[in-house]
Design a protein around this nucleic acid. Structure first.
Lengths: 356, 356
DNA sequence: AAACTTTCAGAAACCGGTTTCCGACTCAAG
DNA sequence: CTTGAGTCGGAAACCGGTTTCTGAAAGTTT
């Protein structure tokens, strides 16, 4: 066996090491390129000794197959594109993490594309991804409504996550927000609340509308009316504070507020405390999103509906992988939400107003 | 000219359209593959008419060159890997957005790798990226200290962003946190504050230590002492509230608190308000991070130090692109922070305690 | 009209792998 | 000793582009 000096990456000084090719491996092992390929991939029939010789040569050179070459004759890149339509925000992150994790487990690498809600950028990324021959695309983001399909009759599968495509034949995965809202209201009812108000985001926002309608509906099933009407506003703490003060001023008694977001709920909590109402003793509070920074820092910690976005991302990735393997799942899929119960709806001991 | 029916992506029913190859383009244009390539890339000398014929054939077929093939003979992939060591968090996002944007402008696509602070995952991703022959790597994340280099003598350039590499020869880009802290203290001094306290995160966290030391130093330059000692704790609102109460109980008067994070500052604001101290009239408050959700929702809105992470990510990307083009910038680079002034240090009108 | 440029397009090698096909060799049976 | 089956490894085609090299046709010069 030729005693060629090994060229390990970690031993090469400076950033000059060029990755080894399979022909260098073959040369070192004293076999042909084809044989080396078979040895490395466990194909064909080779003597154990030969196979071993190739493997140790590869090891010695730190050989990693050039994926471009592999791609060229397999036709598969083992990559997917992930396009976020809104700028990467609070919602996209857990989604992307879940998807990336599930895809990584499937040996897939992920191209990150931040389209910033700009159709031009979006189309640019789409072209780029197609040119790179990704095996599939995940489209995510926050929108007030379903979005138009990203492209017509694409050569690869596309899965929409969190947002849904306006085309019902496209594969979309969305949280069951109505189910989440039901769970929230049911929890309030189960803990004895009867006078429930609802403060949420802008009415034109699909999420706000669905959550509000479902809350009204579920209360009606229990023979109850919402206190006042759904209060549509903004997704902000300031609106939560303002709406809570309006509610207090209306002289229509309430013992619970179901909020469209944790930020709103937090604003409500602050305004209630400032007005001398105790949470949860006087008023129970439920938020939506289960955004830890808000829900945990709230005083008291907030009961909230978790859309399980990371699991949603994972599901989207799994559906995409299945579609890539020829088993598409067209249509709109929903995933359940989970209610996370904390002190804001509990029967925790009464605490001094400045207490922790 | 052959009147072949055009096969546009958008006209093909179902997800079956296979991307056109250059030989199909050549066939349609009635030229050889080599000629088609020249026409599409503006190389060689061709008659204008021929070039045009190829271009419209490509247009007709929706031709996009297979990047794997291009990669194979150029040796360049026009991709970079972005590895986040901590799980993709609040800090990584603006960084990644900035970097992704700058790289996209350089026609680079970005592989997203979430290593979740797990060395095993990190090495897995590193191997994957090397196998994919990325042109470079950006390593980001939040750490208490400088991190060990991700690999030794890699064949491609690496830039560390936000975190820095323990090896001073590696290229790192970090915010000038000391400068940011100086700006914060100087602003407090300029607005007439003299009794400044400091509440921040864990002492073992490099950021907390640097910010605290710099605050003390800058006050000393003005002939002043910090009120008490730097209060090290956690990066949470709860700690902010607790520390503020401790401060109030210490009977050592103070007219300003410089906080190590916006979350801490918000906790401080809440505790001060609960104790009847007015912000900014009695006590001025400065945070760190300029995290909009916290800084804007705080009552009153929070003056804060912005590390300009998006610009930092952009800088990292630019340095990486330069390194890829053979102009490396080894060493540790710092970028200035920016002070964003809001009401918490201002002379805004006194507001009723429940006022908006 | 012959010799020399210049223009333009095709043939072929190449990038780094995978896979098919085929031939050489070994061994056991006839 | 011949033949057939079974092992093992190499040669070559191929994936989809780019680039170099070559040569034919057209135009220019004398």
């Amino acid at each position: 066996m030729p005693a060629m000096p090994p060229r390990k990456l970690s031993e090469t000084p400076g950033n000059v090491a060029k990755p080894a090719t399979i022909s260098e491996v073959a040369l070192l092992a004293g076999v042909s390129v084809g044989t080396a390929s078979k040895a490395l991939n466990g194909r064909g029939s080779l003597r154990a000794e030969t196979r071993q010789r190739v493997l140790s040569a590869a090891e010695q050179l730190g050989f990693q197959p050039n994926r471009a070459a592999v791609t060229l004759n397999s036709g598969r890149t083992y990559t997917v594109g992930m396009i976020t339509t809104d700028t990467i925000g609070r919602f996209s992150i857990p989604l992307m993490m879940g998807a990336e994790d599930a895809l990584g487990a499937g040996e897939m690498s992920v191209f990150l594309c931040d389209a910033r809600d700009d159709p031009i950028r979006e189309q640019y990324y789409l072209r780029t991804l197609l040119s790179r021959r990704v095996d599939g695309i995940i489209v995510t983001g926050r929108r007030t409504q379903a979005r138009p399909p990203i492209g017509a009759a694409l050569p690869i599968p596309v899965v929409y996550a969190f947002i849904s495509s306006a085309d019902p034949h496209d594969c979309s995965v969305v949280p069951d927000e109505a189910g989440g809202a039901r769970k929230a209201v049911e929890h309030l009812l189960a803990t004895g609340r009867r006078r429930v108000a609802h403060i949420t985001g802008p009415e034109r926002h699909h999420s706000a509308a669905v959550r509000a309608a479902t809350a009204v509906e579920r209360l009606a099933e229990a023979g109850l009316d919402l206190v006042g009407v759904p209060m549509f506003g903004e997704w902000s703490e300031a609106w939560g504070r303002q709406a809570a003060r309006m509610l207090l001023g209306a002289n229509d008694p309430f013992d619970a507020v179901f909020c469209g977001s944790d930020q709103i709920a937090r604003g409500v909590a602050d305004a209630l405390r400032a007005a001398g109402r105790r949470v949860p003793d006087d008023v129970a509070l439920v938020g939506f999103d289960n955004w830890d920074v808000m829900a945990l820092a709230c005083q008291p910690p907030l009961t909230s509906v978790d859309m399980e976005l990371e699991a949603l991302g994972r599901t989207a990735a799994d559906l995409l992988l299945a579609a890539i393997n020829g088993e598409p799942s067209p249509g709109r899929h929903t995933r359940p939400c989970r209610l996370v119960i904390r002190d804001s709806t509990g029967f925790s001991p009464v605490r001094p107003s400045s207490g922790e």
